[in-house]
Each structure stands twice: as C-alpha cells, then as structure tokens.
Simulated scan of single mutants.
Amino acid sequence: MAAEKRSLEQRLNEGTVIVGEGYLFELERRGYLQAGSFVPEVALENPDALKQVYRDYMKAGSDVVLAFTYNGHREKMRIIGKEHLLEPLNRSAIRLAKEVAAEHPTEEALVAGNISNTNIFDPEDVESKEKVRSIFAEMVQWGKEEGVDFINAETFYYHEEAVIALEEIQKQGLPAVVTLGLMGENILRDGYTVEDSCRILAEKGALVVGMNCFRGPATMQPYLQKIREEVDGFVGGLPIPYRTSEEHPTFFNLPDGGCSCALPTETTFPTSLDPLYHNRYELAEWAKEAQNIGINYIGLCCGASPAMIRAVAEATGIQTINSKYSPDMEKHFLFGQDKTLKDHNLAYRTKA
C-alpha cells in the first residue's frame, strides 16, 4: 500500500527533495519538440511521449512531476500563431503529470505547475509588467484548478519578474518555488545579485528559492553557496549538465574545439552541445557537494537525462524506482570480477 502523500514542505523538512527537469532538451532529442521555438506542443500532439518522459524522470528519482508548460505561455503561443491552444496545452500538461505521479509505487509524486521567464519583461515598461502579470495569473489559475501541489516559477533573469511571479502564485494560495537563471554578467539584469534576490523572495514568502538552468555545476555552485549563506529557508539548485567554466559561465556560448564541421548556429547552443556534457559521476559529485552545503531541492535542468537524475538522487542517499538498473560491471565479460568469467577475455581488457 502506498504511503500517504506528503506536501513539498513536509518532504523538505524530512530531507532532500530530488527534482528532474530538462524536458525541453530531452523531448527535442526524442524528436517531439522543435529546437528554437521550444514550445511544448507535445502536451497536445504527442501526449504519450510526454507521459513517458515524465515517467522516466520520476522512476529515476524525481519526487516531482513538473507539468511541462515551460514556454507554454501566451507570448510564446502568440509567436507561433497558436494562442487558441494555450489553455488546452496547459491543462493537458498538468493532467498528464497527475496521471504519471499517481503511478508511483510507494508514494504519489508531487505535481508542480510551471511558469517561467516570458522574455518580454522590461523594467522600464509598465505595460510589459502588466502583460507579464496577466501571463502568470492565468497559468497559475489553471494550475490551481487542475489541483497542482505547488508552482515552480523558474529561469528568471530579472528580479522584479520573479517577484511578480511569486505574487501571482500567492494570490492562488499555492506554495512557490522560485529559481533564477544567471547569465554571463554574473548579476541579474535589473541589478540584483542572485543572493539578494533570493533573500528578498524568501522574505516575501517563497517556500524554496535558488537557481536553475544556464549554468553547469562549476559556475552555479559558488552562487548557491552565497544564496545558502543569505537565506534562512529552503534553497534549490538545478544546474545544466554541461561543462561550463569561468571563461564560459553559461551554455549559450560554450565552444567545442573538437568540432570539424560548420555549425548551423553561431554557437553550440542549443543542438551541438553533445560533446560538452558532464558524465553522471561528475554530476553525482556535485549533488553531494550541494547537499553538504545545505541545498535542499536538488536536480538538473536542460540537457539532463534520466540516468543523470538517477545518479544525482543516489548520490544524495536515495534509492530510486529504477536503481535496480544502475551500473554494475561485475558480470561484464571484459571488466567484471565474477570468478566464472573467462580469463582470456579478462586478460584482454587493457588491449580492447
């Protein structure tokens, strides 16, 4: 019999919460989403594909099934000429997430609604602020009506836009997770440091504050440390799984010195990042480090695979549904240690 479903706050009080994000890149890799526009039409066009991604991430250890409505807002739908599908897309993404969350064999997963950066926010334009507020208000209301457990508001590079998101979530009486995307300037575009922004958001009532996307572990972790020192409540960290560096702190301009062909885009972002991944063991080491400094809400963002999420979860001490498929080389014909393996194969391991 499955355990009674705990709230996000209850789970955070009892230990680390694992969050699998990155549906955008994963569904593009699987052939169900267009890179560039990055609009989650999959919720309507290929619902079974979306459910399988939800399922794969949950079985890899995610405590949360995040409804895939990132970029599923009125402005993006206007750009692609499908604004009439906005509400059906949002409701479908949430309903599919709820169906998968209920499949969890030990405790029903949490379902989060999702709002994000609109890319139209302008701190000098009052009209843009009202448009942003309207975008968030309708999406949060649909989430409330569909019965989400909380709202994940993410990837904000303006502090004020994040505050508007939080306010609209609070109007619906839902818990809020608010995470920031820090670009290469190392400061939010309206002049706030990420630690000051997170402290203010936490003081205003966000349950979890922190960072997601844009940066890999190496260039996000120093800022997570600063946030942890400034914030009394729960802190989240969800980096991308790419090898960013001080010279190239985000994945928007990561170079690939080994590429031998001309790329169709100016940089490796978004469809030529493949050689620039961290391996799962590096990501697991980051997860341990994040947990050790007191990050409570841990996951990965764009580019993450289920195997990576599983490695992160296991590194924080969590056995996942699919941990039975975690690597075990004991029986491998070249690299195993089983005594019944053939010596002539084992002797060849260094020459293979």
Rank of each mutant, 00 (worst) to 15 (best):
L300W: 01
F234I: 04
S260A: 14
I115T: 01
I169K: 04
L180C: 00
N279Y: 11
I164S: 03
K339S: 12
R29M: 13
N345L: 15
T155I: 11
A347N: 13
E21S: 14
L263W: 11
R78W: 06
P217Q: 06
P275K: 03
A67L: 10
G257H: 05
A202P: 08
T193Y: 10
L346G: 00
G317Y: 00
D343P: 11
Y70C: 01
N119A: 14
L89Q: 06
V178I: 15
G299I: 02
L33S: 11
H104P: 01
M1P: 04
R95H: 13
V231C: 06
E167K: 10
C301G: 00
G216L: 05
H248P: 11
N292H: 12
I80G: 05
T267D: 14
T271N: 13
K204C: 06
A202G: 08
G317I: 05
I293C: 08
G22N: 11
E203H: 01
P255I: 03
L33G: 04
I187M: 13
V163L: 07
N13D: 14
I18V: 15
R189D: 06
A3Y: 12
Q172L: 12
L273I: 09
E21H: 12
S7W: 07
K342H: 15
L334F: 15
L300K: 04
N279C: 12
R349Q: 14
P327V: 09
N253D: 14
E108V: 07
Q172T: 09
E99G: 03
I227M: 05
L346Q: 03
T155R: 00
G294E: 03
E167D: 10
M308S: 13
I18K: 04
A67R: 02
E75H: 15
K339Y: 15
L8T: 03
E107R: 13
R228K: 10
L24S: 15
